[in-house]
Each structure stands twice: as structure tokens, then as C-alpha cells.
């Protein structure tokens, strides 16, 4: 059974003028203990909004969240219990720690809040620091954030997330501000902790290479929707939704190995309109496929909203009419 199940999550933001802005539109997914789900997608597509809604920092407009099969609490003790179980690690290791407080303080607080016995707080803090390899722990506990490197600060943020002994960690671009070397260290650390503690991990990133290497499944998001999902290797090696193809074809790694040639025409056609249209057709009441304006394969049917369709590999789906047998014939000529 999944540890966390998100059903039809929808988040709207009020705008000064005009209708509400729908940042997340009926998104469903499940997280499993000991597994990592990667969430990749366009900048501004709603990834962080999902993380914020799931960690109950913002209130969704509709949808359901189940923790261990039970509806997540929305207030009082049950909300507290939910918040303990679901912890978040943010992108900016510089902004997420308070410069006035020591590392030890940052870790002691969540322990206290969640009722750790006072007597052995220090021992618990040291244990946390050791688990993220910040050693020697007593020295590290006394340091202030500015005395640490970016990678070390992110370790502190991870230790803080571990303090309440969560079941789930939502990591929102935890490594994109770090250099490659440190990036891999932190991802290996998260991966190890996930195994040791049987955590369920949501890894939000725009780096397809690490998404592939560190996760079991990948979901691809575009303008508030999940447009493709499947096993990590299937999604990266056999990207199916035209947006995923564009994304995978634009990565440096793909270009080095010649993949870019394959998708280049797709991209060129899409190119002209990209920037101009990047946001303009954002209004979510818009019907039809949201990628339509940029899609080189767009057909008449695409004016209707596509449904999730199997692309072949087990569990690998795309929200695109190309995968409906009725329209597939036509598409092979365009592809």
C-alpha cells in the first residue's frame, strides 16, 4: 500500500483581476516507502505548488490526500500528526536556515516541538548530524549557517527534516544550487537515508539525468497537469509526450549522444512560438491540450482535452491523443 496518496489535487490562486489562476489541476499520484518518485517539468508548471499543498503549507481548492490510507487531518492533533509525517527540504540552502541560530538550534527545535524528551536532546541532535555525515557532531552543532558551505547547509536542512522521524520527504530542488560533486553527495545521502529509514521520497527537479538515476518513477508536469508518467528509464529513454520529447531532447546529455538530431525538427517547429506563448495561454479554463500551441503533431482532436493513455510499456502513460489508436494512424505520418 502506498504511504501517501494524492487524489485529484487542484490548487487555485486568486488574481488581482480576472478569474482564479489554476496552478495545479487534478493531479493524482502515490508515494511508496523506500521508493523515490521524481517530479520534473517546466518552470512555473506547479511542482512547488504540489509540494506546498502536500505539506499543508497551502490549502488546495479540491482533492484528497491520504496518509497510510486515512484522510490527512486538516486541524488539531491530526494535522500535527500529518505534518510530522511529511517533511520538506527546500531548494535554497542559504535562505532556508536562520542566520542567527546555530546548527544545533535548528535541529533541537523540531525535536522539541514533536515532544522529544528534554534530557537527551543533545544526543538526538548528535545522532541526526551523524546520520547526514556532519562530523564531528559537537563541533558542527555549534556552527552558524554562514560558517558552512552550501552542501553542508543542505545536510543540515535534511537533518532537520529527519528530526520528527517522518515517513515522507518532499525535496523541492534540493540540489540545483549546488555543484555537481556536492549534488551527487547529497543525492546519495538522501538515497541512503531513504533505504535505511524506508522513507518515501518525492524528488522535484528539472535535472532529468539525476531524476533518472535516483528515482524509480518519473512524472512530467506541464502547466498544472501530469502529462507523462512511468518507470524512470522508460520515460527518459522512450519519452512519449511531445513535451517530454522536447524536454529530453534539450538536455545536454542527449545532445552529446546525438539524440538532439532526432528531435531537432520537433523543436524547431515549436521554437518560434515558445517564448511568445510561454505563458500567454496560461488561462486554465482553456480547453484542449495545453501543449497544443507548441506541438508539432497537433491535430483537430487536440482541441479536446486529452486523457491519460498507455504508450506501451507497463504503467507508462501520456496525456496525448497520439496514443489513442483512433488517431495514431494519422500521427505516424506526421512523425
Amino acid at each position: 500500500m502506498s504511504v501517501l496518496e494524492v487524489r485529484q489535487l487542484t490548487v487555485d490562486f486568486a488574481q488581482r483581476r480576472g478569474p482564479k489562476f489554476r496552478a495545479v489541476d487534478e493531479v493524482s499520484f502515490e508515494l511508496y516507502a523506500g521508493e523515490t518518485l521524481a517530479l520534473v517539468g517546466e518552470s512555473g508548471s506547479g511542482k512547488s505548488t504540489i509540494a506546498r499543498a502536500v505539506s499543508s503549507l497551502i490549502r488546495p481548492s479540491s482533492g484528497e490526500i491520504l496518509l497510510n490510507g486515512k484522510r490527512a487531518g486538516t486541524r488539531g492533533r491530526r494535522l500535527r500528526e500529518y505534518r510530522r509525517a511529511v517533511q520538506m527540504v527546500f531548494q535554497d540552502p542559504f535562505a532556508s536556515l536562520n542566520p542567527a541560530f546555530s546548527v544545533g538550534h535548528h535541529l533541537r527545535r523540531p525535536l522539541q516541538i514533536y515532544g522529544h524528551p528534554r534530557e537527551d536532546l543533545d544526543i538526538a541532535v548528535e545522532g541526526l548530524l551523524e546520520s547526514v555525515s556532519l562530523v564531528p557532531p559537537t563541533l558542527m552543532a555549534s556552527k552558524l549557517p554562514h560558517e558552512l558551505s552550501g552542501g553542508q547547509r543542505q545536510r543540515v536542512a535534511i537533518a532537520r527534516a529527519l528530526a520528527p522521524q517522518p515517513q515522507i520527504i518532499l525535496a523541492d530542488e534540493p540540489v540545483s544550487m549546488l555543484d555537481v560533486s556536492i549534488r551527487l553527495e547529497i543525492l546519495n545521502l538522501l538515497d541512503g537515508l531513504k533505504r535505511e529509514r524506508d522513507l518515501a521520497l518525492l524528488y522535484i527537479t528539472h535535472d532529468l539525468a539525476t531524476a533518472r538515476h535516483f528515482s524509480t518513477h518519473i512524472m512530467v508536469m506541464y502547466r498544472g497537469e501530469i502529462v507523462e508518467r512511468g518507470l524512470a528509464d522508460d520515460v527518459i529513454l522512450n519519452p512519449s509526450h511531445p513535451y517530454t520529447q522536447l524536454l529530453a531532447g534539450s538536455a545536454a546529455g542527449a545532445i552529446r549522444s546525438g539524440r538532439r538530431q532526432v528531435t531537432a525538427p520537433v523543436e524547431r517547429q515549436a521554437k518560434k512560438s515558445n517564448i511568445a506563448l510561454a505563458e500567454l495561454s496560461e488561462t486554465v479554463s482553456a480547453t484542449g491540450c495545453r501543449f497544443r500551441a507548441r506541438c508539432p503533431h497537433a491535430m483537430e482532436i487536440c482541441a479536446e482535452r486529452p486523457v491519460e493513455l498507455s504508450v506501451g510499456d507497463p504503467g507508462h502513460t501520456a496525456k496525448c491523443w497520439l496514443f489513442d489508436p483512433k488517431f495514431r494512424a494519422k500521427s505516424t505520418t506526421t512523425r
Binding site: S181, L184, L208, G253, R256
Partner: peptide
């Protein structure tokens, strides 16, 4: 530095920095 960049389409293997 170049070798430590994970390769998108390469083998899945343990990745280490420098």
C-alpha cells in the same frame, strides 16, 4: 569535472563526484 556530470542516457550506475 566533466566525468562527474551524470549522463542522461548512459548506464544506470552509482554516481560519485570528484
Amino acid at each position: 569535472l566533466q566525468d562527474s556530470c551524470p549522463d542522461l542516457l548512459g548506464e544506470r550506475k552509482e554516481l560519485r563526484g570528484i
